[in-house]
Design a protein around this nucleic acid. Structure first.
Lengths: 248, 248
DNA sequence: GCAAAAGTGTTCCGACTACACCCATGC
DNA sequence: GCATGGGTGTAGTCGGAACACTTTTGC
C-alpha cells in the first residue's frame, strides 16, 4: 500500500495539482430477442477519432446541470425509442491513460467514465438510425473488439445482468404487461443458459411466492395447450423485496 | 423518460456545454472492535467550509496522474496506518448541486464523488492524529449527521459490507493470519447481528468447504476449552471462488 | 466440582431435483 | 390420432435449523 502513495510530491507549502475531468457515461444496453433466443447488446459505430471506425458502447459526455442518470437516459433515448426498461449504475472507470485524447493535451484533462447497465424490451425497441450513424444489436457472443476499454465494461455488465436477473425482479420491467410463464422461462434461459432449472420446478417456485397473478385470460400460440397470462403484482412483491430471493 | 432529455437546448450548430468536473474519492471505512462487539466507521472532522465543524467520511480530490483506486488508498493511508484491509469501489454520486462549492463559481465546476468501501483490521489500525485534525471511530448506530450526502453513502456502504461478508471471503482479509472459529463467528455476529446462525451450524458449514486448515495449534483465552487455530487457505479456496457460496 | 467455551452428533423438516403423468389445443 | 406445449403431482434426496450432548480448560 505504501507504494501507491505520493506519486505527486506533497510539500507542505505546495498543493499537489488536481486533475480536471470530463465525465462520460457509457451504457451497456441488453435486450433479449425471444424469437431467436439471443441475448443482444447495443453498439454504435464511431465516426470520430479516436477509434474511428470501431464499434463502441453508446456513450456521451455529461453536460452542465445534468445528472449522471439523466445523461445515461439521454444516450439511451438518442439511440433507441423504448418505453420499458431497467437501468442502473454499473461501475466507474477512471484511471489515467484510459482515453487517447488525454495524451495530446498539455493541460491534463482526464476522461472518466461512469458505466451504466440497462435491459430493454426488444420488440418495442426501435433503433434511431440518425443520419450516417451505424447502430446495431450484436449477439453477445459475436461482439467484436470495441473502442477504449469497452469490452471490459461489457463483460462487467454481463455479470451484473446475470446477477440481477437471478436475484431481482428486473425481468418484469422488460416483459409485456401480461405474459406467460413460458415467456418468462425463455427470457431466463436465453440469458442464463438452459441448465439453470427445470421448467416445471421454475413454475412452482415462482408461483409459490404469490406475486404473479393469473389474469384468467389465456393465449394460444400455434400448437399446444393455451397458456395462462400472468401479471406481475408490485404490491404483492413489496413485502418480499428485502428477503433473499432466488428467481432462478 | 422523455422528460429527462434536452435540458440544455441542443441546436444543430451549437454544441451543448459540457460540465467540468473535479473528482473526489470518499471512503466508507469499517472496522470491527471484537473486544467490545462493535462495528465502527471512520469519520474525520472538517476544518474548512463548506460544512466546517461537521464530521464527514474521509475523502480527497483526485490528483493528476492518479487513478481512483490510488486516491482511495491515499486517503486511507493519510488517516490510518494499517496493513491488512479490503477495499473496493462502491458507487458514484455525481448529480449537480451535491456540493455547495458548485454554486459560487460562475464557471460551473461540478464535484463528483466516487465512493469506496473498506474493511480494515481494528487492532492494528492506528489513527494518524495529524495536527489539529479530529478523527474518530464511531459505532455505526451512533454516527451523527455528516457533511454533504455522506450519511447516504454510509448506508450504501453498510449494505455492501453485509452482502460482501455473507457472500465473499473478505473476513479473512481482516482477521489475523491464524484465528479461531470463535473469532470468525464473532466478526460475523457484530456485523450481521446475533440471529444469522447458530454457532455449531456455522462451524460445520464453513469447515465442510475445506479451505480452512487446522494449524494443530491451540489457544487458550481465560476459561473454557482451548480453541484450535485455523488458517485461511487461499489455494484451496481458489476453485470455489466462482461458486455461489454463503458464508452466513 | 462447577462454569465457560470448544467441538460433535442427531433428529426434524422444508426445499429443491428429477421425473412421470395429465390437459388442451392445432392439424 | 398425434404432435406440441401447458400444467400438476410425487418420490427421493440434500441441506439447514434446532438442540442435546461431550470435551477441555480455569478457578
Amino acid at each position: 500500500m505504501a507504494g501507491r502513495l505520493q506519486k505527486t510530491p506533497d510539500h507542505p507549502l505546495t498543493k499537489p495539482a488536481l486533475a480536471d475531468f470530463k465525465v462520460g457515461v457509457e451504457n451497456v444496453i441488453f435486450s433479449v430477442d425471444t424469437d431467436q433466443n439471443r441475448l443482444l447488446v447495443l453498439v454504435v459505430m464511431r465516426h470520430e477519432a479516436p477509434y474511428l471506425g470501431y464499434w463502441s458502447l453508446p456513450g456521451t459526455l455529461v453536460r452542465q446541470g445534468e445528472s449522471l442518470e439523466d445523461a445515461a437516459y439521454r444516450v439511451l433515448a438518442e439511440k433507441i425509442r423504448v418505453k420499458n426498461l431497467y437501468l442502473e449504475q454499473l461501475y466507474t472507470f477512471g484511471g489515467p491513460r484510459r482515453d487517447p485524447r488525454e495524451a495530446p493535451h498539455a493541460f491534463d484533462v482526464r476522461y472518466l467514465s461512469v458505466s451504466h447497465f440497462a435491459l430493454v424490451r426488444f420488440v418495442e425497441a426501435e433503433l434511431i438510425a440518425g443520419g450516417v450513424s451505424g447502430i446495431a444489436w450484436y449477439p453477445l457472443a459475436q461482439v467484436p473488439q470495441l473502442a477504449f476499454d469497452h469490452n471490459q465494461i461489457l463483460s462487467y455488465g454481463y455479470q451484473r445482468l446475470r446477477n440481477k436477473l437471478a436475484y431481482s425482479p428486473i425481468a418484469f420491467d422488460v416483459l409485456p404487461d401480461t405474459f406467460t410463464l413460458g415467456d418468462l422461462y425463455q427470457l431466463y434461459t436465453t440469458v442464463l443458459g438452459e441448465s439453470f432449472s427445470d421448467y416445471s420446478n421454475f413454475r412452482t417456485r415462482l408461483l409459490k411466492w404469490g406475486f404473479l397473478q393469473d389474469t384468467g385470460r389465456k393465449t394460444s400460440r400455434g400448437a399446444g395447450r393455451p397458456a395462462s397470462l400472468y401479471r406481475f403484482n408490485a404490491e404483492a412483491f413489496e413485502p418480499l423485496k428485502d428477503k433473499p430471493m432466488v428467481f432462478i
